[in-house]
Design a protein around this nucleic acid. Sequence first.
RNA 1: GCUGAUGUAGCUCAGUGGUAGAGCACGUCCUUGGUAAGGACGAGGUCACGGGUUCAAGUCCCGUCAUCAGCUCCA
Length: 641
Amino acid sequence: MIITLPDGTKKDMPDGSTGMDVAMSISEGLARNSLGIFVNGKKYDLSRPINEDAEVKIVTFNDEEGKEIYWHSSAHLMAEAIAELYPGTKFGIGPAIEHGFYYDVDTGDKVITSDDLPKIEQKMKELAKKKSEYQRVEISWDDAIKHWKEAGDEYKIELLEGLQDEEITFYKHGGFIDLCRGSHIPNTGMIKSIKLLSVAGAYWRGDSERQQMTRVYGITFPKKKMLDEYLEFLEEAKKRDHRKLGKELELFRILPAVGGGLPVWLPNGALLRRIIEDMMRKENLKRDYTEVITPVLGNLDMYRTSGHYPYYKDSQYPPITMDDEEYLLKPMNCPHHHQIYMTKPHSYRELPLRLFEFGHVHRYEQSGELSGLSRVRSFTQDDAHIYCTEEQLKDEVRDCVQFILDVAKIFHLDEGVSTELSFRDDNEEKYGGNVEVWENAQQKLLEVAEDMNLDYVVSPGEAAFYGPKIDFILKDAIGRKWQLGTVQLDYVMPERFELEFTGADNAPHRPVIIHRAILGSLERFMSILIEHFAGNFPFWLAPEQIRVLPVGGDQQEAAEEIMKKLKGLGYRASVDVRSEKVNRKIAESEQMKVPFSLIVGKREVENGTVSVRKHLEGDIGVKSLDEMIETFKELNVPGAM
RNA sequence: GCUGAUGUAGCUCAGUGGUAGAGCACGUCCUUGGUAAGGACGAGGUCACGGGUUCAAGUCCCGUCAUCAGCUCCA
């Protein structure tokens, strides 16, 4: 048979050769590190014979698919350990996840807690050392059912019932056997470094009506160094947690007295937010958007017209009734903007009309969902609606995409931007508008993605009910991905609100609406920004940019003069005149992550200079104040670092 | 919303049924200093809230609220 490798190389190998044979034929090193093989796109164990001509791809831990196989096998190893330690345990599912794996287990009366993790971890290490081979066993459905009935595991039986017409396989290693599609790594000995991370409750099949099982999370690596790096990454993420930094840097607080999910902005945070808003306002105006302001309440009928009410009742605050009229705390700005569009007749000459607003909305998120600034009940979107003609649509979408990319660059979030095109799923009925219009719109989005060279994936079934969209996924400084900007096409609202413009033919036409947000919600964006910069904001963003520190009492006046001069030039400066040692003042300025500390002692006063300490860099020497002001000027620009 | 954990001074946290604590922050005073925390004294508490058990509750029980982890949800 002919085996074709990913680089196109063809190898003639005997029928029945295994993935391991293929790996061996390439190099011994590869054979040692391979975790699985894809044969004509299907996952195979390395020990499974290949019986036909095939295109193959061997995967190692460096491949996403390799990690998936490795962690899935690790989940089996953990299950074996749990089964040995807690006989009678029933097992749900145990997949690989983005970082590691989990297994849902039902240990009956004995509940596994985090205190038990070291013991399980230890057992896994013992079992791994045995280098037990993972063996694939093909079995009939009836025999499979029989097996799990004997084992008394109703979860596996339920899984099997959903697999009646499929090929059933078991995987066996050491003393453990599991219903599993595979594939797996050759043997448990390849799992070297093991860390169990946490336990949590999880519903069987994700259904909150059903049995809650214990989900045990873990991660494994082929090298200890990789585990150490991962644990370091977790530490780093913890250090950057915006909830912790938000408190330490006095940016925001969530006060029980105010309410869950209702953050209050402290002076530093309010400043930071206004800086971002001012920058965004300028960027919007530059791109020919016009700003509008609409109230946080709106007549309920308007939301009935838009179709938002009552479908999304679950996430809305209950309506307020006044003078026999019902009002809703607005959960989105769209209908308000449509009403603004409707205040006067429009000519095709006015289009595209771009309305933007820092729209303050309220959504009643489930209590268990609330988390810092990432998920709140009161937040502000940098929302905009573009009313345009079908012909203008593509250009407008392209401009929105460029806008998002430009802003990502300003915040240094432009490395590794990816996008998701959310399209309709023709098997579902939730969508408004007709199919051809959708097809056309989706085609346009695809074209934009292609033209602009976006890194994109298409996700059918992820579209909003009113139209397809492009979502942007940005990567922060430590590689975590966040969904931020979104551009959504809408053919439904113009119909519902009967929006019109007069064309060149003097006849009424329907505009198309683009919904777009660059940052999404200011709150969420700022949580990401805080973590991205670890609180070390660049000069132009820092709420406090410069702190002047007199060394002794004699320099107090000179220091105050400097502070006033800087403030006069528009910088956010302060002075620390307390009768503390300069060491102490420096320590506190550094803790608050102020970008520049200007130390003013006897020598500096005499020479009209300042001794400059830059946050994260330390003492950078004595400079003239004018020279520093030049530096500040260069740094006080959005995007500068 | 569900499961579990947590809730003590502004912050971080000790406190296993018997007089509410520490460090930092805060105030006053001393100290006037040179690149990450000088000293003394002082003030500060509805131990989240409500109920219960007990001679006695920060501590045990129940409920509520909030926070955290995970699940479910996120138009």
